[in-house]
Amino acid sequence: MASSPRLTHLQSLEAESIHILRETAAELQRPVLLYSMGKDSAVLLHLAKKAFFPGKLPFPLLHVDTTWKFRDMYAMRDRAAAEHELIVYRNPDAAARNINPFEHGSELHTQLWKTEGLRRALAEYGFDAAIGGARRDEEKSRAKERIFSLRSAHQRWDPKNQRPELWSLYNTRVRPGESFRVFPLSNWTELDVWQYIEAERIPVAPLYFSAERRVVRRSGAWIMMDDERMQIEAGEQPEMRRVRFRTLGCYPLSGAVESEAESVGDIIREIAESRASERQGRLIDQDTPSSMEKKKQDGYF
């Protein structure tokens, strides 16, 4: 063993993410941080605050709303908005057509509210870099993506022709209309995120912790009845279960897992032993095989 001091794994990850955030702010004209109220967003926001300390964030936050998030998530958002400039964008088309996951299905719902909503928001505000909390360990096509991921003028990702990305040198050049998705958490795993949340005492939505919740069984997952808009299908029986969420999205599309984990420490132990992947509960990833890659090519985060 060399005697020289070394950073811990979490310290290196933190330093790398801060470096990426500072590069984004220094080199892009108009970056924005996508804030979705989940644990990854919470970590990302925390890192951004650290990156620009003692200054303020040099970019606004953007939430591309679907109107179908959990109530707890909207409460989180309000807290973030009290502290930072936060833009809420709702795709007016989706709003006008009253798009919802029950009548229109998860695919169209996601397409219009999220993919199309993000696309329009970026275009309307002229953002040339959208910073997001996606991680490579989440999904097999994400594992392939660069940290600075180029989008064409049509916001498309071309996975077969990505820019080489050497060391920590990021080529941030864009032509008119082109933009970047920047992923400072690329090299973090779910476990890293929770260990960091524990170490830094970062507040996250209570939905991550186990509690008695009103749920129904649907497509092999527990769906929470978060508000009165929830539609029950024939044969479904609402019941109370001790559940928690590993990822958060629109409540009718987010599957909860049965769990006793009530603290961050419990969650870390649970994940270390878990045999199921993080995204298992997400109904939208399972529409078609490789559906994440297709969505990403279309401009989904």
Binding site: R136, D137, E139, K140, S141, R142, A143, K144, P159, K160, Q162, S186, N187, T189, S290, E293, K294
Partner: peptide, 22 residues
């Protein structure tokens, strides 16, 4: 197939770009 995550890679049975695994 655990690491070749792109559609084109899976169809052709070759790796096109780097997969990062942890």
């Amino acid at each position: 197939l655990l690491v070749d995550g792109l559609m084109a890679e899976r169809e052709q049975g070759v790796t096109i770009d780097v997969a990062y695994r942890y």
